[in-house]
Design a protein around this nucleic acid. Structure first.
Lengths: 223, 223
DNA sequence: AAAAAAAGTGAACATTCCATGAAGTTTCCA
DNA sequence: TGGAAACTTCATGGAATGTTCACTTTTTTT
């Protein structure tokens, strides 16, 4: 990636201009939006790596905007808030997000931006959680989340889900799944897999449909 | 901290005196230095919380001084520059730094000073201690506090808590915890971890629920 | 359309794994 | 060197998970 693109969302033109100056001075590309709705429409057309969003905005405040964005893409957001704004709400920050209190120093803004970018884009490479719409599967943390809320999957359930999702599209026979998830020296019947698939689908809710039965062969994870 | 100590570095005695008057009037302690070299020697003997440094100084200009200081300690610096000085250089401000253009109003100086101090020392707290609601874990001080009162955790207990909390969400197997907390050449059984987890949960009270058992894998700290 | 094959389901049963308390061992410090 | 604190081990009961089985439903084959 040669340069990061940062979207600045603030209803005050002066503030946008100020921030643009800082950011461009440090080599970032900048796009501006006047409010959350405007920002969402831009996101459909331009690839953006980071958002700087004012908390107080007309039509859609920063938090609502964030909520809306996170539903579809994984975009880090830095909130800008005037001193005294609803700082308590900001405690609900997602991992990778940050906030800055206005007024801020140029150095602070740039430091936060650099820090969040580093965190977000390094983390993904190292961490590589699998993401399928609202479903996220994190092998390292051994955690699967649906719309951000953790699913309580058992060992075998998680194992099956991970294997299928990791190579989505590929069909795995029950025997293969037993081999991979249970280990080489298992002695379970293939029917056991069915049972786990059942509870897995149950726990996944609507997303359970992504685990497809391939008749006569086995199962696959289809996006 | 009852009062901050601020070092004023300027080759003009008049300017130093002026700034000292402002600062002391606002309750700060002040030490003076005539140039960068002088300032560095003072830093070895006096604990200083903030520097006000003129950009144009004999022997060692403000930026060179800053560069030298940052090599060893993390000290915020506010640069003083006459209008027309090399303002472009100031773009290389580190986080926590700021600058003021001379001549300035007393109020402006004090506002910048207060702002930088607030940001710097607030920020440092955030960095050194992990906070999860009423629970605070300070690796450096090797201390965990619950609602402000210190918990008396043993070495292993603290180690486990810190590792889990530091990477909250990630699951650690008992073997991993032994590896990390006990060190590479331990010979304890994995059951030992269970026992420490037990006492840890006990000492943490309600917050003990944040240490979750991941069946078949190990433990994790969940917020 | 009937039969056969494969997959889904729910509940009983079996197993694995963990929390716990008590007792034993080591380490640390006065 | 004695005692306290920290650490470790062990056995046990119980909870969470995993497995099987009999049966039903779905899909495919003939």
């Amino acid at each position: 990636m040669t340069s990061y693109t940062i979207m600045v969302i603030d209803d005050e033109a002066e503030m946008r201009k100020l921030i643009r100056t800082f950011l461009e001075g440090d080599g970032y590309r900048v796009v501006e939006a006047t409010d959350g709705v405007h920002a969402l429409s831009i996101l459909h057309e331009v690839r953006v790596d980071l958002c700087l969003a004012d908390v107080m905005m007309p039509y859609m405040d920063g938090f609502l905007f964030a909520q809306e964005v996170k539903r579809t893409i994984d975009l880090p957001i830095i909130f800008l808030s005037a001193k005294g704004d609803e700082l308590d709400k900001i405690k609900g920050l997602k991992h990778g997000d940050d906030y800055i209190v206005k007024p801020f120093l140029p150095g602070e803004l740039l430091a936060r931006v650099a820090s969040v970018l580093r965190r977000s884009y390094q983390r993904k490479e190292l961490h590589s959680a699998l993401t399928f719409g609202p479903l996220e599967i994190d092998k390292e943390a051994h955690r699967a989340t649906l719309n951000g809320t953790a699913l309580s999957l058992t060992l075998k359930e998680f194992g099956i889900l991970y294997v299928l999702a990791k190579h989505s599209g590929r069909v795995y026979s029950r025997d293969e799944l037993l081999q991979i998830v249970w280990g080489g020296d298992h002695d379970s019947s293939v029917r056991t897999v069915d049972t786990h698939i059942k509870t897995l689908r149950l726990k996944l809710g609507d997303e359970g449909q992504k685990i497809e039965t391939v008749w006569g062969i086995g199962y696959k994870f289809e996006v």
